[in-house]
C-alpha cells in the first residue's frame, strides 16, 4: 500500500509545482498582453484625441461651401476648392508615374533579377530610399524637374516628385506581396509547361495583386499628406482658380494644359491658414486637417478591405 501511496504523493506534489508554473506563465502572458494593449492604446488614443480635437475645432466649417469655395482673406467664406482639386490632380500624376514603375521594378527584382552584387546594390538603395526625408525629394525635384527639365512649379512637377517619394514604398510592398506566394505555385505552373512570363503574369502577380494594391494605396495615402517637398518646389499659397479642364467638349477631347498649371494642395492650404494671424483661419485649418485624416483613413481602410477580399477569392 505504502508503495502505491508514495508515488502518488510525489505526483501530486509535482502537479502543484506544475500548476504553480502554469499560473506563473499565465501571469506573464497577461502582463505582456496588458503592456501590448497599453502600447496600442497610446497610439490609438493619440490619433483619436488629435482627430476629435480637429473635428471640434473645425466643426463650424464642415459644409458644402467649404468644399466649393476658393480661398479668401475672410476666413468664413474661404474654402478648399482649389486645394482638393489640386490634390486630386497631383495624386493622379503620382499614381500614373509611380505605380507602373514601382510594380514593374518590384516584379523585376523579385522574379527576374539575377542574384549578384548589382541587384544587392539596387536592393540596398531601394530600402535606403524609403527612409530618405521627404524634403530631400523636394530639393531633388526643384533642381531636376523645375530647373533642368523646365517643368516649372506645376502639377506635373509635384506629381512626379510625390511619385519618386512613394516609389520605394510601392517597390518594397510589391516584393513583399510576391514573396508571400508559395514556391509550390510557381513550381506547379512550370511543371505544366508555363513560360516565365505566364508564371509571373498569371500566377505570381495575380495572386499577389491584393498585396500590391495595398502597398500602392498606402503609398498614395502618404503622398496626400506630404507638405515639405511640395513647398520646396514652390506650390502657391493663394490660388483662386482651377487648372484647365483635362477633358473638353471639342476634339481632341483630352488636353494636358492642366499639367503645367500652378496649384495648391490640401496640406499646403492647411499650413498657410495655420500661419495666419486671425484665429478664425485656424478653424479652417483644423477642418482641413480633419478632412485629410478622413481621406487617409478611407484610403487605408479600402486597402485593408481589398486585401481581405482578394485573399478570400484566391483558391489554390
Amino acid at each position: 500500500m505504502t508503495d502505491q501511496v508514495k508515488p502518488q504523493a510525489s505526483v501530486l506534489a509535482n502537479l502543484d509545482e506544475v500548476r504553480a508554473m502554469i499560473k506563473r506563465h499565465k501571469l506573464n502572458d497577461s502582463i505582456f498582453a496588458i503592456i501590448g494593449l497599453v502600447a496600442l492604446m497610446i497610439g490609438l488614443l493619440t490619433l483619436l484625441t488629435l482627430f476629435v480635437d480637429l473635428v471640434m475645432d473645425g466643426y463650424p466649417r464642415f459644409n458644402l461651401d467649404f468644399m466649393s469655395e476658393f480661398p479668401s482673406r475672410r476666413a468664413g467664406s474661404a474654402g478648399l476648392l482649389s486645394a482638393w482639386v489640386g490634390s486630386l490632380l497631383v495624386l493622379s500624376v503620382t499614381f500614373i508615374s509611380a505605380v507602373p514603375m514601382g510594380v514593374g521594378a518590384g516584379i523585376y527584382l523579385e522574379e527576374y533579377a539575377p542574384k549578384n552584387w548589382f541587384s544587392d546594390l539596387i536592393e540596398i538603395n531601394v530600402t535606403n530610399l524609403a527612409g530618405v526625408p521627404s524634403i530631400i525629394y523636394g530639393l531633388l525635384a526643384l533642381g531636376l524637374f523645375v530647373y533642368i527639365l523646365g517643368l516649372g512649379q506645376s502639377i506635373v512637377t509635384a506629381g512626379l516628385t510625390l511619385g519618386l517619394l512613394i516609389l520605394p514604398v510601392v517597390i518594397v510592398s510589391t516584393r513583399e506581396a510576391i514573396r508571400s506566394i508559395p514556391v509550390a505555385i510557381r513550381e506547379a505552373a512550370y511543371a505544366v509547361g508555363a513560360t516565365k512570363w505566364q508564371v509571373v503574369s498569371q500566377h505570381v502577380v495575380h495572386y499577389s495583386f491584393g498585396g500590391i494594391l495595398t502597398g500602392v494605396i498606402i503609398g498614395m495615402s502618404r503622398a496626400i499628406g506630404e507638405t515639405a517637398p511640395i513647398i520646396t518646389i514652390g506650390a502657391l499659397t493663394f490660388i483662386a482658380f482651377l487648372p484647365p479642364s483635362p477633358v473638353s467638349a471639342e476634339p481632341p477631347y483630352l488636353n494636358f494644359d492642366w499639367l503645367f498649371s500652378g496649384f495648391t494642395v490640401l496640406p499646403i492650404q492647411m499650413f498657410s491658414w495655420l500661419s495666419r494671424p486671425n484665429p478664425e483661419f485656424h478653424i479652417n485649418a483644423a477642418a482641413t486637417g480633419a478632412i485629410i485624416i478622413v481621406v487617409t483613413l478611407l484610403m487605408n481602410g479600402t486597402a485593408i478591405w481589398l486585401r481581405y477580399n482578394m485573399r478570400k477569392k484566391i483558391k489554390w
Binding site: 500624376v93 500614373i96 508615374s97 505605380v99 507602373p100 527639365l149 517643368l151 516649372g152 494636358f256 499639367l259
Partner: peptide, 15 residues
Amino acid sequence: AAFVAAAFAAPVSHA
C-alpha cells in the same frame, strides 16, 4: 498606364 505616362512625357513644351 504606361501609355498615358508616355503621353505625359511627350508635351514638355509649355502650353
